[in-house]
Design a protein around this nucleic acid. Structure first.
Length: 217
DNA sequence: AACCGGATCGTCT
DNA sequence: GACGATCCGGTTG
């Protein structure tokens, strides 16, 4: 029996078929479900970041379609997972109609179900608020990796995909803060790409992007 | 609390 | 061949 709880109503694909700067803040407070064979972990989103496809120098899609970013050019409501820094995975939700290649990076949240499993996957976390406090920490806690790239987060039948987004409890508008992304200058530097819930302990600490130094020797 | 270096490799130039 | 939509652990203030 599907839940009749209005807070657990799946977000329809239409939700994601909007401009990314509309979708991103609207995702805050909503619930991401990752139902894998080893267990289900749920996350209440507290921090996200928008990437506006071809218009955005910071986006993987800025220089057009490649094998890696192909999912971003596809149907909204799908999961785009990429590998970075040789050891981390990050997860996005594709927005806008096919061809527009925008997406929302899911950066942080509160684990609201499956805490034990998340703890097992994130032994370094000292407090539960650290389990998914950062984009790569989040994918670790959820058990998301490359295998999930392209998965549907709006499946017609839950059996078709381990992912879904539930309505959840969006924060009061006054509690949503926004700011520019770091590390992207020039056009769009004044656009509020990043959104988070004010005062939430699971929001990742603000770290300005430090220029990469050469590796010693 | 802030800062540093190391880890580690796929992707694009 | 260079460098990331990063994290972690150790060190310094």
């Amino acid at each position: 029996m599907p839940s009749t709880d209005p807070l657990r109503t799946p977000l329809p694909r239409d939700f994601f078929d909007r401009p990314v700067l509309e979708v991103a803040p609207d995702l805050l407070g909503r619930t991401l479900v990752c139902a894998f064979p080893e267990g289900t972990v749920e996350l209440r989103l507290t921090e996200v970041e928008a990437y506006d496809g071809p218009n955005d120098p910071g986006s993987h899609a800025y220089r057009g379609r490649t094998t890696r970013n192909a999912v971003m050019f596809g149907e909204p409501g799908h999961v785009y997972v990429y590998f970075t820094y040789g050891m981390h995975f990050c997860m996005n939700l594709v927005c806008g109609p096919p061809g527009t290649a925008s997406g929302v990076l899911l950066r942080a949240g509160e684990i609201t179900a499956g805490v034990e499993l998340a703890r097992k996957r994130r032994p370094a976390a000292r407090k539960d608020t650290e389990l998914a406090q950062g984009p790569a920490r989040m994918t670790l806690a959820l058990g998301v990796d490359r295998a999930h790239d392209g998965a549907d987060a709006c499946p017609a039948d839950p059996a078709d995909s381990p992912f879904r987004m539930l309505t959840g409890s969006p924060p009061l508008p006054g509690l949503v803060l926004s700011g520019p992304r770091t590390g992207v200058s020039g056009a769009g530097a004044d656009t509020p790409w990043r959104y988070w819930i004010e005062g939430d302990p699971t929001v990742s600490p603000y770290r300005p992007h430090s220029p990469r130094r050469r590796t010693a020797r």
